[in-house]
């Protein structure tokens, strides 16, 4: 009977862990996605200083959440997103707009991959 209780306790802990993981991953990917969208809008409006600040903010946020995300998602996938975000700042200039858009698309793809890695059954 003690073992059955222990099994129930372990299942409850696992459920709690998975719910926490769900919210952690969802909040992080949503925040990065909305940040990338804001960055894109700022760049298209030729507000490059604002775009630069958003890129910096995204890198800081991603660095903060990296340790937490690696509890649930493959380390290399999380790191590659942070590296991509680090590159955005360098392209936040008028003459590099086309490159910035390309890098933004790549970062959005990586966020999507991160999301799929956690939620996809396939």
């Amino acid at each position: 009977m003690k073992r059955v209780r222990a099994a129930f306790a372990v299942l409850i802990l696992l459920a709690g862990f998975s719910i926490w993981g769900h919210f952690t991953v969802k909040v992080t990917t949503d925040t990065v996605e909305s940040g990338l969208l804001r960055l894109q809008q700022a760049a298209l409006a030729e507000q490059y200083d604002k775009a630069d600040a958003i890129a910096l903010e995204l890198v800081d946020y991603c660095t903060q959440r990296e340790e937490l995300l690696t509890l649930f998602i493959k380390r290399d996938l999380v790191s590659s997103l942070r590296i991509s975000l680090c590159g955005l700042q360098a392209y936040a200039k008028k003459e590099n707009l086309a490159d910035l858009m390309l890098e933004l698309q790549r970062a959005q793809g990586q966020v999507h991959a991160l999301h799929c890695q956690y939620y996809s059954m396939a």
């Binding site: 222990a6 099994a7 129930f8 696992l14 862990f17 509890l71 649930f72």
Partner: peptide
């Protein structure tokens, strides 16, 4: 090492719990 520890720990504990509950 690139795979999170939770990737092993969660399924192992899940299998153990289910095994105990099914045997009970």
């Amino acid at each position: 090492p690139e795979i999170p520890v939770a990737g092993s720990v969660v399924p192992v504990l899940m299998i153990v719990s289910l095994e105990i509950l099914i045997s009970a």
